[in-house]
Design a binder for these strands. Structure first.
Lengths: 109, 109
DNA sequence: TTCGCTATTCGGCGTTGCTAAGTACTGGTA
DNA sequence: TACCAGTACTTAGCAACGCCGAATAGCGAA
């Protein structure tokens, strides 16, 4: 795993982070840490921040700046209505892909 | 579906085509048609050809030119040992990703 | 001759994730 | 005091991938 997972993350990482935000609001550093805990050991921090900026620009999230006791202020992102809608579309697309692949794995149609 | 699936295909299309080739050898035009039948209506032909060239360059497939009754000769690709190995690694990576996503879909840990 | 289907190639584009470096704030330690 | 580690975010440049559009080529039918 390495290059392979990197390519697969294109398009899915977006959904992963959206799903994390759908549970409860979070900020970049926190999301990165949570991903590491869940086995995504090699996801680059910069990648997450760039992703969040994209979410904001596309209007999928709302942002609030919250002061931190130990460092610069946090930018807390929360999923808004548009974001939830988009997340559902993501799940539909994901399901489609996952089904095709599952079929292929079982000897192919 | 459209842009979303396009991004998700990055990295997975590779595995999909590898899996198709693992069933039996095939040529580009044929693969494209089979994909369309399986619901991937919007995969660009050029994409498949480029992918096959990449497979060849990486030594995952063997190639034979076979004359066609109705058009230019076909380049038939068959998975070799290296390709099968790589396909298995693909499945491992895919499983990892799919499990994480399934967990996230169910309320997320 | 022209059209349509088969079959492959090529150049340029946009999106994505990674790398690497930098900024900024806090608390602990030598 | 000076320095370092941890927290938190930003930015610029790169490589890989899939898409788009056009071109080439062979064959059979209208």
């Amino acid at each position: 795993m390495g290059k392979l997972v990197t390519e697969m993350l294109k398009g899915t990482l977006e959904g992963i982070v959206l799903a994390i935000l759908s549970i409860r609001p979070a900020y970049g550093y926190e999301i990165t840490a949570r991903l590491r805990d869940q086995g995504f050991a090699d996801i680059a921090e910069g990648t997450i921040y760039a992703l969040l900026v994209r979410f904001e620009r596309r209007g999928l999230v709302d942002v609030t700046k919250v002061p931190s006791e130990k460092g610069p202020p946090r930018k807390v992102y929360s999923l808004n209505a548009h974001g939830r809608e988009y997340l559902e579309e993501f799940w539909r697309t994901w399901s489609f892909l996952a089904e095709r692949l599952e079929q292929l794995r079982k000897g192919g149609n």
